[in-house]
């Protein structure tokens, strides 16, 4: 009997709240409501964006040992980490789109990684190596489909003076331009170790 009363009270409260929300305000001006809504929107958006950007840092990426112990040390040996010009491309520079729409899509996709983290899909070096090819293929495919968009945030054929490149790079890039190729077609493994079980099809 008492339980029924409680349920009945809860339903009544919810109904009242819904009714209050639906009822036009008689106490506050439209301007006040808009102002409050605007400020609340800014606070909400700011909070959301801050949280989003917090996940868009190298620190966040390597806060998981799966990244810190496997791919991060490999990247530290590459030119994207240390070079003569002092420009560094960090994890999100290459792996997260800068444009908001693409970024949100990528973030939603990446939310699957939370599940992987929970169940320990790649929580040992052995598991990571076993999964490396699959993970690499996913990223190669994403980059290929996006025409190496994240590479092109910094690099472009338009601004590339092949005459200043070494003979080998010059030949390769001139051919790539002629054949309308994209960066990831050739530059797989530029910042991480190539999977040992990579196949010829992965290269083609």
């Amino acid at each position: 009997m008492a339980e029924q009363d409680n349920n009945s009270t809860g339903t009544t409260r919810l109904s009242r709240l819904m009714a209050a929300l639906r009822r036009p305000s008689v106490h506050y001006s439209l301007a006040s409501l808009l102002l409050v809504g605007f400020v609340a929107g800014i606070i909400f958006w700011g909070g959301f964006n801050t949280a989003l950007e917090a996940t868009n840092t190298e620190e966040f990426c390597i806060s998981c040992h799966e990244m810190r112990d496997n791919v991060y040390p490999e990247y530290q040996e590459t030119i994207h980490y240390s070079n003569r010009t002092g420009v560094r491309a960090t994890c999100p520079d290459c792996h997260v789109p800068k444009e908001w729409g693409y970024k949100m899509v990528r973030k939603v996709q990446a939310s699957r990684e939370l599940w992987g983290k929970m169940v320990g899909t790649i929580d040992t070096p052995e598991k990571f190596e076993a999964k490396r090819l699959t993970l690499a293929r996913n990223e190669w495919k994403r980059m290929k489909n996006a025409d190496s968009r994240e590479c092109r945030n910094c690099h472009s054929f338009d601004s590339m003076d092949t005459e200043k490149q070494k003979q080998r790079g010059r030949k390769q890039h001139e051919m790539a331009i002629e054949d309308n190729m994209t960066c990831i077609d050739c530059h797989k493994g530029i910042a991480h170790k190539l999977p040992e079980d990579m196949t010829d099809e992965d290269w083609d």
């Binding site: 080998r168 190539l194 010829d200 992965d202 290269w203």
Partner: peptide, 9 residues
Amino acid sequence: GTEHGGARV
């Protein structure tokens, strides 16, 4: 190609 980057050219 997986060994020698110049295989493509």
